[in-house]
Computed example of a mutant assay.
Amino acid sequence: MAEAECKKLGIVSSCDLQIFVDDRPGLDGNAFQTRDRFGRPAILFTLPLLVDARNEDELAFILAHEAAHQIEGHIGATERSAEQGAMIFGSLAQAQGQSRADIAAAAALGAQVGARRFSKVLELRADRLGTVIAARAGYDPVLGSAYFARIPDPGDEFLGTHPPNAERKALVREVSATLARQP
């Protein structure tokens, strides 16, 4: 179903996703969108996440969420924001006459800040499109978002990577309700 959403958005090439399962021992439950060693888009699930998922709706929603990151180009957006942060922080350190090591440290910090600058917004965008993808594929994204109740709540940390779980669940319910009203 992600491919149909890609066609609607006119970006079919970004929907050619590979899916991997990381079964190394000791990993936490997680799924994320990344690139493989050749730069191709990939979604990685850890085995503990697959074991912890209670139903197909949870797995479908998680997969749709990660596919949405790819469809919307979130890796590239994060990289560009990190580059801008590095440039700004590095330039400020240089303007203050800092040493090369301090300029490099400032640039590294700027990259971290830049990468996280829009992280919560991107997560919510992926939840929104992921809800649409999962629903159109025949799964219940509201049931799928029940997974949020079993993972640690990130709260609303400054420069955190994810929004609070309650906010994410509310968004999924809102988007699902809108989809249910559509013919």
Rank of each mutant, 00 (worst) to 15 (best):
A105M: 04
V175Q: 05
R181H: 12
R116D: 08
L59H: 05
P41N: 08
E5H: 10
L63V: 05
E66C: 05
F89R: 05
F20G: 08
H162G: 00
G155H: 03
S176F: 03
G85P: 01
V21I: 10
D140P: 01
A106I: 02
D16G: 08
A107I: 00
Q18F: 08
N30R: 10
A67Y: 04
L124E: 04
R117E: 12
P163F: 10
P152R: 13
A4W: 14
A137V: 00
A170P: 08
N55P: 02
V132E: 04
A53L: 15
L171A: 01
S81V: 05
R40S: 14
R37V: 15
G76H: 13
F148S: 11
T78M: 12
V21R: 12
R37A: 14
G26P: 07
D127F: 01
D57V: 05
D22E: 06
I43C: 11
F61V: 03
G10D: 06
G155W: 03
G97E: 05
A106E: 01
A4E: 15
R128Y: 04
R136A: 02
P141C: 03
A4C: 07
E58D: 05
G76K: 09
A68I: 05
F89A: 15
A31T: 12
A149N: 08
K8V: 12
I88P: 11
K169D: 10
A107K: 00
F89V: 07
G110A: 03
V121E: 12
A166Y: 13
R54L: 13
L122V: 06
F148Q: 12
R136M: 04
K8P: 06
T161P: 10
A134H: 01
G90F: 07
G39S: 09
A180G: 10
L50Y: 04
R168G: 04
G160H: 11
F20K: 14
F32I: 10
D127R: 00
D52H: 10
Q94G: 01
L129E: 01
S81Y: 05
A137Q: 01
G85F: 12
V113M: 02
A106Q: 00
E56W: 02
F158K: 11
L44W: 07
L63Q: 06
S91Y: 06
A53H: 06
C15P: 06
G85W: 09
F38G: 09
A111N: 02
P48E: 10
T46Y: 06
